[in-house]
């Protein structure tokens, strides 16, 4: 199954945000649930092996959009061999804000999934982007998943500087159970918090210090952002730790 959904905002004449385009393409179904807020509603199981799903998000300058999902996404193997994929391309315009806070992605046994996110940020755009991955349903060995996340900040001349490039591989013999990668965790989560408030000090040659706690860290990036990262035994603990890390990331914002 191939599906392409699209979300586009525009500035309302009286100020504020208007949903200019909201194009669902089952199983990617979009529902407006508030001003500037959209929920992804799963209509049908999956993604299943062979499914190729894509979501485009365009947050116009000065507008703000929040995307959530109604429930966790369960990635399943298909009846035919083949990867499933979910691709999100999002760009956030000048002065715009995007909050992407879906429920976790659960990797069922035997799945083979690919998640790709490309995020393009205008120089003074703000983004909060959360991803949570659960390694299998209860007591289940997870299938395979490869995620790739690319976030780039563009300056006013259009030149881009990479903010974060990360691959995560789950269900791989080399990394699973490695104390270097996930340890004995069954879930991994990260939230990128980025925007002008997380700029490095102009004269700051030294790295900003991270905040850490049990199983989580808020990691100031080299560019204008903080990556909150957490590992946990289950989805509930993961969310709790990730929220702590997100709070810490918010505290790392600078006052200008």
């Amino acid at each position: 199954m191939i599906a392409r959904a699209l979300l586009r905002t525009s500035a309302a004449p009286a100020g504020g945000t208007r949903l200019e385009t909201m194009r669902s393409d089952p199983p990617l179904t979009l529902r407006q649930t508030g001003p500037g807020r959209v929920h992804l509603v799963a209509t049908g199981a999956g993604p299943l092996g062979g499914d190729r799903l894509a979501l485009g998000v365009d947050v116009a300058p000065g507008t703000s959009l929040e995307i959530r999902s109604v429930g966790a996404t369960l990635v399943l193997p298909g009846h035919v061999p083949g990867e499933s994929s979910m691709t999100v391309h999002a760009r956030v315009g000048a002065g715009a804000t995007l909050r992407f806070l879906p429920e976790p992605t659960v990797l069922a046994a035997g799945c083979s999934h690919r998640m790709t996110v490309r995020l393009s940020l205008a120089p003074d755009a703000t983004v909060v982007w959360r991803e949570e991955i659960v390694f299998g349903r209860h007591g289940e060995r997870p299938g395979r998943c490869h995620t790739r996340f690319d976030a780039t900040v563009f300056d006013t001349t259009g030149a881009g500087r990479p903010l974060l490039r990360q691959d995560l591989v789950v269900g791989d013999g080399h990394t699973d159970g490695s104390p270097a990668v996930y340890g004995d965790a069954r879930c991994v989560g990260s939230t990128l918090v980025a925007g002008p408030e997380w700029r490095t000090q102009p004269d700051g040659k030294d790295e900003r210090r991270a905040e850490t706690g049990d199983g989580w860290a808020a990691l100031p990036l080299a560019g204008p952002g903080v990556l909150s990262s957490a590992l946990a035994a289950d989805a509930v603990e993961l969310r709790r730790r990730l929220e702590r890390a997100e709070d810490a990331a918010l505290r790392l914002a600078v006052a200008w």
Binding site: I2, A3, R4, L6, R52, L53, A54, G56, V57, D58, E83, S85, M86, T87, H89, A90, R91, G93, R114, T116, R118, S120, A122, H146, R148, D150, T152, F154, G158, G160, P162, D167
Partner: peptide, 25 residues
């Protein structure tokens, strides 16, 4: 990434090829 994607349709890539065919693999 070298082109400025802010100047193009965010889904532009998806129209040129099947969605999901993007990325290192």
């Amino acid at each position: 990434d070298d082109a400025d994607p802010l100047a193009v349709d965010p889904c532009g890539d998806d129209r040129r090829r099947p969605p999901g065919g993007i990325g290192p693999d």
